Simulated assay, not measured.
Amino acid sequence: MERQNYKNHKKFYPPHHFIYLPVLIILEILGIYKVFNDSTNQLLWILFSIIIFLLFYLALMLRQHYALGLQNRLVRLEFKQRYFEIFGNRSDEVEEKLKFDQIAALRFAYDDEFKELLYKALHENISGDEIKKSIQNWRPDLHRI
């Protein structure tokens, strides 16, 4: 397996991203095409297009909402645990000063870089993307959903 880094850290779920969603997009395009080119069944194609759009919208929103909500909670919990292990203190005050993208980006840094990048995030307000780009020794997250 290739080592994880900034350029390859995103993950796709092939059945969802490369089969289900493309099929829905093709069906939606077909439905819209038929709405304008099949006047005898226009109402049927309008209904078809609305149903396909709702399935597409529901698939995107539910998948994103549940998975990202849970993942975000776990990322925050991981940050709290890691902060406590490194500094021996609770992270509540520090966590309140950080944006979520900064907390999420800090996961990819090993402990020595974590301290330095946390300081920069708190005092220089560098973004999560800047934190990721600053990491010299990338700590992979191979258990993402």
Rank of each mutant, 00 (worst) to 15 (best):
R90N: 15
V75N: 08
S91Q: 11
K34W: 06
D92K: 10
L106D: 02
Y83V: 03
I50H: 02
Y83K: 08
D38V: 02
K120F: 05
I29P: 00
L54D: 02
I26N: 12
H65T: 08
M1V: 13
F53V: 00
Q64I: 01
L21E: 12
F84R: 14
N137G: 06
Q71W: 00
K132C: 04
R76G: 07
Q64L: 10
D112E: 15
I145G: 12
F108L: 06
Y6H: 00
P22D: 07
N125W: 05
V75L: 15
D92H: 13
D111W: 03
I50A: 06
N72I: 07
I135N: 02
L117V: 03
L27A: 15
N137C: 01
S39D: 13
R144M: 07
H65Y: 14
R139L: 04
Y13K: 03
V35L: 05
L62P: 00
N8R: 06
I52T: 07
Q102M: 09
L118C: 04
M61D: 12
E116V: 14
Y20P: 01
W45E: 02
Y57A: 15
K133F: 03
D38N: 11
N37Q: 05
E78W: 10
L98T: 09
H123S: 15
R107Y: 00
L44C: 01
R90C: 10
F53Q: 03
F87S: 11
E116I: 12
F87T: 06
L118Q: 01
V75K: 14
L98A: 08
Q71L: 09
F18K: 13
S39L: 14
R107T: 00
L24P: 04
I51T: 08
K133N: 01
G69N: 13
A109V: 05
L44E: 12
P140M: 05
F79A: 07
D141S: 10
F36K: 07
E124V: 01
V94H: 11
I29C: 14
L117N: 04
Y6M: 06
H9S: 10
I103A: 09
T40Y: 02
D129M: 09
I86V: 04
V94T: 15
E93A: 14
K115P: 00
I32L: 09
L62Q: 13
Q136P: 01
F36A: 11
Q102Y: 12
L118P: 01
D101N: 11
K80F: 09
D111C: 06
L24N: 10
L30V: 11
I126G: 02
A67T: 07
T40E: 15
I50M: 02
G128A: 01
E116K: 15
F36L: 11
L21Y: 05
A121L: 07
H65C: 07
E130H: 04
G69C: 03
E113T: 06
H123V: 10
L118G: 06
F53G: 04
F53M: 07
A105M: 03
A67Y: 14
L30S: 13
I131S: 04
L142H: 03
D112V: 15
Q81L: 13
V35S: 03
P15C: 03
L44A: 09
L98E: 08
H9L: 05
R144Y: 12
E78Q: 13
W45S: 04
H65S: 12
R82M: 10
R90P: 00
I86L: 07
L27E: 12
I26T: 13
P14L: 11
F87K: 12
F18I: 08
